[in-house]
Structures are given as structure tokens and as C-alpha cells.
Amino acid sequence: MAFLSEANPESVDPKRALLSEFFSEPGFVVRLHDGVWDEAALQRLLSAQRAYLTSPRDAARFERDVAQAFWLPHREARRYCAQVAPSRSNDPCERGCEQLHDMAYWLFMGEPVSLDDAVFAQMPSASPALSADGLKVRQAMLDESLAEDGFLLRLRCELEWDRDGFARLVDAMRGYVAAQGEVGWLDREAAEVFWYVEWFVPQWVSRPNFPRKLAPEHYEQAFDDLRDLAILLFVGNESHATRQEQTP
């Protein structure tokens, strides 16, 4: 998929440069799927991500392709490192995963961006807002993710896997995905929930001091559910997502 203009590459904006690098054939994720950790490709991607993050932009929302260009490299790098170098420390895998995490954190957790009126006026308008019902679904999901008796706070603070709380959170996330539909723009606060739970929950539950009282299959299925929801929001195309997941 070509995004760059060969006639005048210097005029390409940071978003287009990011997507061009992410979707390129010798790109970092493609090389991972070939079983190769390409440090040069990683550094090109990180540079493109950083340029996008530091450019004038609407930090409250971003396009689905942009979210994918931050989420998928972070996820695939973690998968690669877990499979290829699970016991190594201070190697390129560990450093690269940390760098990709930092870039994704910046996008999904939010970073103040100063826009003057002239710059803001030149930015493309976002997609139509969610309907009134859609906004209620969005707020319900955010409320569930932050609830004091909700799954995430109990998981982190009490080291407790609340099955009912998990079911409520997943149902709320599914409702948001349905309300979002194929809209090309994502709300940052909502996207943050999907990004955060997909990487944090497996990492936290895998810690040695976490009391895993249920069968291993229960947790693995839960991790798969969170992954699938992230795919639906950030990638959207289930057939493409399936190919990504099935690649060794």
C-alpha cells in the first residue's frame, strides 16, 4: 500500500509517512512474521511514530489505521519476544518492546498537544460523532473500566480475578465495538481501554505472585477474548486479523 508521493516526498505529512512505513513490505511487522527481528526496520517505525506523535494533531481522536500502526507492532513484538527470546535480558527484543510500548502509551494514554487556531482549522474534520445511544454505550464502557468494584481495579489492587466483573467489562467493550461500527476515527479514551486491557491483563496475571485459582484454560480464553476485541477495534477486518494471528 503506497502512501508516499515520489514526486515530492518532503511534503508528506507525518501521518502519511507513518502509514507508509507501517504498511511497507520490508516493514517491521512483516519482518517479524518472517521470523526476523529487523532492528533497522524497527528504528524506522519508531522514528515515524515519534514524528507523528510530536506533530500538530487532535490528541482526542485518531484514525483506525493510525491506531493499528501503534497497537499491532507493540503486540507482535511482544509475541515474538515471548516465543523466540523468553529468557533473555537486555537484548534487542526487550529494548524494542519497551520502545514500542512507550510510543503506544503516548498515543493511547494521551499527551497534551498545543494547537493554535490556524493549525486546528487546517486539520481534517473527524468522522460524525456517535449517536446519542452510541455515546451512552461509550460512557457505560468507560464507567465499567473505572468502576471501584470493577474487574480492572480488583485485578490490580486486590489480585482478584472477578469473573462477573470480567464478563461485564467484555460485554461493555463488545457493545462499544458494535456502536463504533466501521467508522474510520477512534475516540482516544475508548481506544485506551482496549489497548490497556489487551496487554496489561495477561502481563499482570502472569506475575509469579498472582493467585491463579482457575484452570489455565480459563485465563487463556479470557486473553483471547481481549485480543479479539482489540483486533475488531484497531484492525476491523477480521480476515486480515486472522492472518496476522496465524502467522508463526
Rank of each mutant, 00 (worst) to 15 (best):
A118Y: 08
F120N: 13
P124Y: 14
V137H: 03
H101S: 11
P92T: 05
R95T: 07
R61Y: 05
Q49I: 03
L53S: 04
A118T: 15
R44S: 13
D91C: 07
L46E: 15
P73C: 11
E63V: 07
L107H: 08
R78Y: 01
N90R: 14
V12E: 15
A85Q: 12
F120P: 00
R16F: 10
A121S: 15
A17D: 15
L72F: 04
L107P: 08
A129I: 05
N90T: 03
H33S: 05
R138V: 01
L45I: 12
V113R: 00
A59L: 00
W106Q: 11
P73Q: 12
P26T: 08
Y105A: 02
W37L: 11
L115S: 07
G27A: 15
W106G: 00
A17Q: 13
Y105R: 09
R64H: 13
A40Y: 14
Y52V: 01
V137F: 03
P124G: 10
A85K: 10
A67Q: 06
D117A: 15
D116N: 13
V119P: 03
C93R: 09
A60P: 00
V12L: 13
P56E: 04
E39L: 11
S114I: 04
Y105Q: 04
F23V: 07
S125M: 07
L53T: 03
N90P: 00
A85Y: 11
S55R: 04
Q68S: 07
P73I: 06
S20W: 12
A41R: 14
P56A: 02
W37A: 06
Y105S: 06
D133I: 00
F23Q: 14
A48K: 08
Y105W: 01
Y105C: 01
V12R: 15
P86Q: 12
Q68I: 03
P56F: 04
